[in-house]
């Protein structure tokens, strides 16, 4: 069996940044020599969340905002699967904000690729939690009146062990980030800047292209204070790369029977095992 992934015809607009993200994902998985049946992509609803339909893997395309909980369920049930969450900025930071926060607290071994186009793509251009203040949208006629959310800073304050930013227009860089995130033992957030060519006329390809820069070789991604500075840098210049990384105990490892036992899915079931539980009721 090879580690080649098939691609299916997407329903994304021509020129959409999602194509590049898919290309990078395919390359990352192939270069890591992971077989398609060993991967589960869990997603919510949105343009980004259609990913499991467009590449030949196991897929759980669930509800808007709710990709993280099933991803946790999948990983707990079978620690041998590579679990990847693909979701939009609205999906992750809006509708699913609570799961995002509490998912970080668990530090479960999942790679999370957020396609951050700073807009609601699928529902035609309303503001997302990362849309800039004042930006005019198809719904915010007078401009957005709430402050944007900074996902990287939030993840850092919540104690995430792997926080990174990528750009869909820099495929080799993105492939490397994705590979590192997939290999990372714990929850790995990669916020990927992705132009939506239809609904976000502010954060266009060239808007991002002119701003992003690679974090230098000398950058120390183990320094949390530096990381926070980089996370907050989102303006004329936007750093991309691994912003913060630390080794941490994962959620799975906190369950002895998972850490030292077989995947839950392989545990034999025998009702008679429960017989001894009757004793405490005698």
């Amino acid at each position: 069996m090879t580690c080649k992934y098939e691609l299916y015809e997407p329903a994304w607009c021509p020129g959409c940044g999602n194509y590049m993200i898919r290309t990078a994902l395919k390359m990352a998985l192939e270069e890591l020599e992971i077989k398609p049946h060993e991967v589960v992509i869990v997603s919510g609803i949105g343009q980004a969340a259609k990913m499991p339909h467009y590449i030949s893997v196991n897929g759980f395309n669930g509800l808007h905002g709710r990709a993280i909980p099933p991803a946790i369920g999948v990983k707990m049930a079978n620690k041998e699967l590579h679990v990847i969450v693909e979701s939009g900025d609205g999906d992750t930071y809006g509708e699913g904000g609570n799961h995002f926060i509490h998912g970080i607290r668990r530090n479960i071994d999942i790679a999370h690729f957020v396609h951050n186009n700073q807009i609601y793509g699928l529902t035609k251009g309303q503001a997302s939690p990362t849309t800039a203040m004042g930006q005019i949208t198809t719904l915010q006629f007078d401009g957005v009146k709430v402050e944007p959310l900074n996902p990287l800073a939030l993840a850092l304050t919540m104690g995430a062990g792997f926080v990174a930013r990528g750009f869909s227009g820099d495929i080799p860089h993105l492939v490397a980030l994705m590979k590192e995130a997939i290999k990372y033992k714990g929850y790995a957030l990669v916020d990927i800047l992705q132009p939506c060519v239809v609904w976000n006329r502010v954060n266009t390809f060239s808007w991002y292209k002119n701003r992003v820069y690679h974090l230098p070789e000398s950058y120390d991604y183990t320094n949390k204070e530096e990381a926070m500075k980089k996370a907050l840098e989102f303006g004329d210049r936007i750093p991309i790369g691994v912003i913060y990384k630390e080794e941490k105990e994962t959620y799975l490892d906190r369950f002895d029977f998972i850490k030292n036992g077989p995947p839950l899915v392989d545990v034999e079931l025998n009702p008679l095992d429960a017989e001894k539980l009757l004793e405490e009721f005698r």
């Binding site: 759980f60 709710r66 099933p70 946790i72 369920g73 999948v74 049930a77 079978n78 699967l81 545990v267």
Partner: peptide, 15 residues
């Protein structure tokens, strides 16, 4: 909300 979504993920994966 997380509860049932999570249980469905676990069940999908076979437990």
């Amino acid at each position: 909300v997380a509860a049932l979504n999570m249980a469905l993920g676990a069940s999908y994966a076979g437990v």
